[in-house]
Amino acid sequence: MSLEWMAWTLPTAIFFATIAALLIAMTVWQASAPSIERRGLLPIATTPGDRLFLGLLGSAYIHLAWIGLFDLSLWWALVISAVYMIALMRWG
């Protein structure tokens, strides 16, 4: 089966591999140490999975805002997203 129609590129492959790795890691983590919902800085009670979703969604918006508003390298958006993601997972 040829996968040419999916038009893979190295950056998008790395992107999806990272997301898949995050999902697998979170699943293993949940299985080995089941988590419960808790209230953090966010106004709603969240599980680590909820916070991962919010982290990824927020990161997507951070990148879009960066592309739309600034002419600087996109790596800065990645750094901001990583900081946001870690903060959200820890205190969110």
Partner: peptide, 14 residues
């Protein structure tokens, strides 16, 4: 995933 792949490329044909 395919849509994401397309979004970073200029595609003229197969």
């Amino acid at each position: 995933m395919t849509v994401v792949n397309y979004s970073v490329q200029d595609i003229f044909g197969p």
